[in-house]
């Protein structure tokens, strides 16, 4: 099967600092892939390059390489999202003064078509579109168990629910692939277990690929089918969870950190 995302030789420099150094990576449809590495390894920077927040210094980012592939280097973030990549943020970036449902509806934005005319005159088509969007977003919230809080302001949600709302918002963009940046950060063990089920459920029901950054090794080992390991901006290993667990290079990079946890 063809790759949904293919990254070749991705390099990102910040002045003299090479945060990402010729990293190769691919993700196939419906695959769950993890990207791990010690703090400051360049994982978030890698995400930011792929999703258009930074323009990479070198390398190619190809989406949908089965249809020849579209090179999305330097695309604006919104164009990348339109191409089917949706992300969450390591430091939660919700819209705090909008309701939970409105947050998700922002994700729907790029799949709706109402223009100024529709906004001003609210014709039948626009009304139908808005209603459909609101309902679809509500269904997404139900899937993640957030529907009860739908009229609540996002900032009033507990921390774990805010992380879930980020996922809901990303799902609303109708992605082919989700990029999750430390979705379990700050969650307690029970919440982390729930999140593991949730991510697998999303992959199974939505049929989308998932690329996730995570420090929680239990979640990574349970969930992912393949793992990439980064350190100092470079990819130092890739393979199945078993291969990674026994890779001496990885163990060296993580020296002091318990990879079997």
């Amino acid at each position: 099967m063809e790759n949904i995302l293919e990254v070749k030789g991705l390099t990102m420099d910040f002045g003299g600092l090479r945060a990402v150094d010729s990293v190769d990576l691919y993700v196939k449809p419906k695959e769950i892939v993890a990207l791990i590495g010690p703090n400051g390894a360049g994982k978030t920077t890698f995400f930011n390059c792929v999703t258009g927040i930074y323009t990479p210094t070198k390398g190619d980012i190809l989406v949908n390489s089965n249809r020849g592939g579209v090179r999305i280097n330097g695309f604006k973030p919104n164009r990348v999202t339109e191409r089917g990549l949706a992300r969450t943020f390591q430091n939660i970036r919700l819209f705090p003064n909008m309701t939970v449902l409105e947050n998700v509806m922002i994700g729907k934005h790029c799949r709706l078509s109402a223009k100024i005319f529709g906004a001003l005159f609210r014709d039948k088509k626009t009304r139908a579109e808005e209603l459909k969007a609101a309902q679809e977003c509500y269904v997404i919230l139900e899937k993640l168990g957030l529907e009860k809080t739908c009229d609540e302001l996002a900032s009033n949600l507990p921390y774990g629910d805010q992380r879930k709302l980020e996922i809901a918002r990303a799902l609303a963009t109708e992605p082919k692939m989700l990029l999750l940046d430390e979705p379990a950060a700050g969650m307690n063990p029970q919440e982390t277990v729930d999140l593991t089920h949730l991510i697998r459920m999303i992959r199974d029901t939505e049929q989308i690929a998932i690329l996730l950054i995570e420090h929680d090794m239990k979640l990574v080992m349970n969930l992912s089918e393949r793992i990439y390991v980064m350190d100092h901006g470079q990819k130092i290993a890739d393979g199945t969870p078993v291969e990674i667990r026994n890779n001496p290079e990885v163990i060296k990079a993580y020296l002091g950190e318990d990879i079997d946890a």
């Binding site: 999703t51 258009g52 927040i53 604006k76 973030p77 919104n78 999202t81 339109e82 949706a86 992300r87 943020f89 970036r93 919700l94 819209f95 705090p96 003064n97 909008m98 409105e102 509806m105 922002i106 994700g107 934005h109 790029c110 799949r111 918002r169 990303a170 963009t173």
Partner: peptide, 19 residues
Amino acid sequence: RAWLALREDEIACQAMGIG
């Protein structure tokens, strides 16, 4: 809605597909 979101968080707003 897009205006509101843009006001709240520009980067998140763009990442969610708003130009």
